[in-house]
């Protein structure tokens, strides 16, 4: 047997420096991009070359240039500034939907993972049924039943993505529950609630932080998909999905109206994925791809 020996903790001199050196440049770049998005959401003015709402019909539908990096829309508004402006609402939708999705998934997953076998069986069947519906369709069903508002959009995305998370969380709990170290704690004579609190919870929940980060990127993609279909936040809001919806009629004449907001979404989702995967790899070695 080969022992895997890592660096002893004491030997980690000048930890920040060593940490920065150990992060690949691609990941650093991605982290920088995520930081810019956060800045756009918190203080959009810092990044905006123009007023995102002032119309100027003389400069409508201009292609991207140095003056207007993302071009202008049919009312002559600077698209880049509008994308920056939309960051706050888009990120809020993404974070809100992911948070809600996690709450649902945690309730189901923990009930199944820690509860009696009967509950686990029930939850598991329920999840199997939900898996027969694709994420987008679950979201659409919800929008159809409850009507079309920003809240429904958030809840719809949350419901669409929750089954996948629930299954992963259930798996986490079952795996930790069946581990030898939990058995070892039983053999020492600790009561079960203490074992749940000390071993099962912390270990099962450990991957969730990273999962959440990745989830926000995916949630924004799903939410923008709904908006793209005209079922989310509606124009003239600068929310990214709404920008996509507004640009749909211009695909053949002014491609940037569709491509640039999409790029903003893609860049965010990708950067979050790269950063998230890197953290995950650091925490637990090679990442296994999972279906959500």
């Amino acid at each position: 047997m080969t022992a895997i020996t890592l660096q002893p903790r004491a030997a980690r001199a000048s930890r920040t420096g060593a940490f920065l050196r150990s992060v690949p440049p691609g990941v650093k770049l991605a982290a920088l991009v995520v930081a810019l998005y956060v800045l756009a959401a918190v203080a959009p003015g810092v990044l905006q070359p123009h007023d995102p709402f002032s119309t100027d019909l003389d400069s409508s539908l201009l292609a991207p240039s140095l003056q207007h990096p993302f071009g202008t829309d049919q009312s002559g508004r600077d698209l880049f500034s509008r994308v920056v402006e939309g960051a706050r609402q888009s990120l809020a939708i993404g974070i809100g939907a992911t948070a809600l999705s996690f709450v649902i998934a945690l309730v189901l997953g923990i009930a199944a993972g820690l509860g009696p076998r009967l509950v686990d069986g029930g939850v598991n069947r329920f999840l199997e049924v939900l898996f027969a519906f694709p994420t987008l369709f679950l979201a659409l069903l919800f929008v159809a039943v409850f009507g079309q508002t920003v809240t429904t959009q958030i809840v719809a995305v949350a419901i669409g993505t929750a089954p996948g998370y629930a299954r992963i969380i259930r798996g986490q709990f079952l795996q930790v529950k069946g581990s030898t170290y939990v058995e070892a704690a039983r053999a020492v004579g600790h009561p079960y609630p203490r074992i749940v609190a000390q071993h099962i919870f912390p270990n099962a929940m450990r991957p969730l932080v990273v999962m959440f980060t990745l989830g926000v990127g995916q949630a924004i993609v799903w939410a923008s998909g709904l908006a793209f279909l005209g079922l989310g936040v509606a124009p003239p809001s600068p929310e990214w999905g709404a920008l996509l919806d507004a640009g749909r009629n211009y695909t053949t004449s002014a491609w940037w109206l569709e491509v640039m907001p999409g790029l903003a979404i893609v860049l965010f989702a990708l950067s979050v994925t790269v950063v998230g995967r890197h953290i995950q790899e650091r925490l637990e070695g090679k990442v296994k791809v999972q279906a959500l």
Partner: peptide, 23 residues
Amino acid sequence: ERRPRRREISVIYQDPLSSFDPR
């Protein structure tokens, strides 16, 4: 009833690594 008496008997596993909480 058994829990308080579990101290009287303990165990060593084949694979110690998996028997420790990794954190």
